[in-house]
Design a protein around this nucleic acid. Sequence first.
DNA 1: CCGCATCCCATGCGATACTG
DNA 2: CAGTATCGCATGGGATGCGG
Lengths: 126, 126
Amino acid sequence: MEPGTPDHMIREDCAPRRVLALFDAKWTSMVLHVLATHLGGSARTGVLERSLPGISKKMLIQTLREMEASGLLSRHNHGTVPPAVEYAVTPLGRRFVEPIDLLYNWARANADALDALVARPKSSRR
Amino acid sequence: MEPGTPDHMIREDCAPRRVLALFDAKWTSMVLHVLATHLGGSARTGVLERSLPGISKKMLIQTLREMEASGLLSRHNHGTVPPAVEYAVTPLGRRFVEPIDLLYNWARANADALDALVARPKSSRR
DNA sequence: CCGCATCCCATGCGATACTG
DNA sequence: CAGTATCGCATGGGATGCGG
């Protein structure tokens, strides 16, 4: 039981790392958040695009399809013309909304801490 | 007030996006978590390395220095030989431990949902 | 033991243009 | 409006090797 004994190791296949993988998709959590928390659970492509300033059409579609593939979203094509496609949060997806919103709310409530992270004017260098 | 009016837009410089930036560093949150929650707030480089299986020495050092630069960690060189350097979570860094641990705990408690994400054997394609 | 420098490849992702 | 196809660059990040 030496001090350096790592019983606290973050195994490579542990749950936390799997969650992080969710976030390095960069848009996944935002899509889920906007869709579930601000758009009532479902929305059309265009609405999503306008809700996420800065996202490219390519990334939007790509993200949506990946999320559909993993079961976070469902996709419904109305088959009309012009096209109307609706993406909805699945029950599985809904389970992920909780931690995401928690994180987002923390962020909003702690904007000061985030500012400190960037603004390091008078540094403590060495 | 049409249905598609985006008062729910996720602005490009909003707090949530800044938090996400933290996570796409890939190791930052894990370092913070291990250090604060499992190692009592500070540890030497080697201990950290062994606590994060899969991290390369390069990424470990790089992450640690970036975190020091942004004020999440402090670095103390003992000046001995062989070298002994100790990284400690700063008060600022400690503020980020809360949401990270929240996320990690959620992950551990919801491993089943995470499994579902990957294991999509019988697909619902179309 | 701690840290830095290189090389180098995989990929993320935006820009743009085209189709039904 | 929804989606696809290309191109091209920036960058993340691993491997390896040197130095104090």
